[in-house]
């Protein structure tokens, strides 16, 4: 194969001038991916927890709303949602707000649209996990909480959610890994995250193999850390004498 391997490319100054290297570009993308995914994940957890709980409450308006929410965000392709948030929603906002958004720093615009998009898309999936966690509890637990004199919110808070959350740590790990992988979609609106930087590097250096191997390794690195982190969490919240406990 007549390919000129050149791993030294990462240390070369970029063709755009300045004293940045291609490695610096990569690192910028790496940081962007992490910042975007983590912030979206935190929102997804919070919103997903609330929506997931609402799906299980005995009020048909609340649970109906939550069901509709989940179906909307789960059934539209992520890419389409991203375009909606970036291109369409700012036009639908009240003119003042829309204009304010459009006048901010373009990177911030891309970041905000990407964050909201990833967060809400993932929150629908988190909500489903939360719901399944709650539904997998023995039905008597809710009655036991109520019978002690807890109100329904207290029963969720002290009895059902602590167990439900423990049960769904493994599936939540997958969602957490997914959000990092899904963040690559945001390169389509120009956000310079890891995948976008990889492609940019190819354009500037014509070294696609090195570039995408580096991108691959960076994603793997992130996900290995997430996996070990979540495994630690799982071990930490284990209930003695219960399934998977010691």
């Amino acid at each position: 194969m007549a390919y000129n391997w050149n791993w030294g490319v990462f240390l070369q100054p970029t063709a755009t001038g300045g004293d940045e290297t291609y490695l610096g570009w990569m690192f910028y993308g790496f940081k962007m991916t992490i910042a975007l995914s983590l912030s979206a994940w935190l929102i997804a957890l919070a919103v997903g927890a609330v929506v997931g709980v609402l799906r299980t409450v005995p009020n048909k308006w609340l649970s109906g709303f939550a069901t509709a929410y989940v179906e909307v965000f789960r059934n539209i392709p992520l890419l389409v949602q991203l375009f909606l948030w970036y291109f369409v929603i700012p036009e639908l906002l009240p003119e003042k707000v829309g204009n304010a958004f459009k006048q901010t720093n373009p990177i911030l615009q891309q970041f905000l649209a990407s964050m909201v998009c990833l967060a809400l898309f993932t929150s629908a999936r988190v909500a489903e996990q939360v719901r399944s966690g709650i539904n997998s509890l023995p039905p008597g637990q809710k009655n036991a909480g109520l019978a002690m004199g807890f109100t329904l919110p207290q029963t969720y808070r002290y009895v059902m959610l602590p167990m439900a959350v423990r049960l769904i740590v493994p599936p939540l790990t997958s969602e957490f890994l997914n959000i990092f992988k899904n963040s690559a979609v945001c390169s389509t609106i120009g956000l310079l995250e890891l995948a976008a930087q990889g492609r940019q590097l190819v354009d500037y250096t014509a070294q696609p193999y090195e570039s995408f191997i580096a991108v691959t390794i960076a994603y793997l690195l992130i996900n290995v850390v997430v996996m070990f982190g979540m495994r630690w969490v799982e071990g930490h919240v284990r209930v003695p004498g219960y399934i998977g406990g010691k």
Partner: peptide, 16 residues
């Protein structure tokens, strides 16, 4: 309910 004690068939202790 807080004044009426109840004991269930499957104990229903809070496992965590």
């Amino acid at each position: 309910r807080s004044t009426v004690g109840m004991v269930f068939q499957n104990f229903e202790l809070f496992p965590h």
